[in-house]
Write a protein that binds this DNA or RNA. Structure first.
Lengths: 189, 189
DNA sequence: TCAGTCAGTCAACGGTCGGTGACTTATGGG
DNA sequence: CCCATAAGTCACCGACCGTTGACTGACTGA
């Protein structure tokens, strides 16, 4: 993630800012807000630690920028309703971990109980995760159904983030994805 | 949680050890391993911080002691198989938060991605959570089914731990418990 | 050419952390 | 009663944290 390009990549503010944001997203996703350090983020971006705070003001504002630039769950909801379970299960268990949607989910579940970042993360989760699902579901019990499907999504992401679901074979992961697809589909109906 | 009893409760090794363990369980559950401090645990137990390490050797050994004294998920599995979903959903969403089983679950999901405590927590989770479920389920796909139901349990516990499922009314919590009971029941079949 | 601006560097700050070891004090058996 | 010992206290260490502000050096427009 150091400068991989030609002779002069330094002194390029937009590229530097983007590199910091990218490093921050991966560090926050892998370690959570508290454990991820400004020094570590700066190291992965190939940048001086003080520059990170010069660009974003504070560690907390950096997290806010990471969450703001990331898309919501909305594109997961696009598509036929009867395929939702399979789409969601594939994204959660089979898609590459570099996926930005997965990174944001990991940030949420690794930072939601942080004393410093928790309120920001929870507010973001409510606005960009639960509320779109609730609106997409519609109906009288939309809030409760959104919470049920959200909990399953969180659990699946957590299980993968912790130890890759404890499964070695690709076939086992496919089997688990199939089972979770059924439960996700049941939860939205 | 200070000494609430008669005139002389100090200089009682077993009571002190128990108070430290109890305070550690609640702190680890509420804040996770990294954010919970030895000083904070000692403060809640009404004890000098150095005494905590004198009794348990290190913060990591203290966590190991907390996990060791807690029962496994086994008592959740006792009972008719066709009632499993309802039993689990009730415990996860309706039972009081002081429940030790709930505390251990919160420790798991708030400490599993810690660099220091992660390996210990994950090993404990495998041995005392997934493997009993797997043995209880039986059958060819037991491992995969155990992972599916485990993920839903984790997600439900996480959703409650973060913001109490975002639900205010008891009726809503009952509704959510009913929905999750269905998905949990589907996951074990 | 040259001064102003802006990207980036550097050392240091106050604070918190887990952990250590020497210290004091209460207790109970001889 | 007396003292060995267990129980509890205290001051301190080195490491790491987020954050700060003064600094350097390179572009760039007048």
């Amino acid at each position: 993630m150091r400068q991989a390009e030609g002779p002069t990549r330094a002194r390029n503010a937009v590229a530097t800012r983007s590199a910091i944001l990218s490093a921050a997203r991966s560090r926050f996703a892998e370690e959570g807000y508290d454990a991820a350090s400004v020094r570590g983020i700066a190291g992965e971006a190939g940048v001086d630690p003080a520059l990170v705070l010069r660009y974003f003001g504070s560690k907390e504002e950096l997290l806010a920028a990471v969450l703001a630039e990331s898309g919501s769950v909305r594109d997961l909801l696009e598509g036929p309703r009867e395929d939702f379970g399979a789409r969601a299960a594939r994204m959660l268990l089979l898609d590459p971990v570099e996926d930005h949607k997965l990174a944001v989910l990991q940030i949420i579940l690794r930072s939601a109980s942080s004393a410093r970042a928790g309120p920001l993360v929870r507010r973001n989760t409510q606005e960009r995760f639960y509320e779109p699902i609730e609106a997409w579901l519609g109906g009288p019990d939309a809030q409760i159904r959104a919470r049920a499907v959200g909990a399953i999504i969180m659990g699946a992401a957590l299980s993968r983030a912790i130890d890759n679901n404890g499964l070695e074979d690709e076939a086992d992961r496919l089997g688990l994805a199939g089972r979770l697809a059924e439960t996700l589909q049941l939860a939205i109906e």
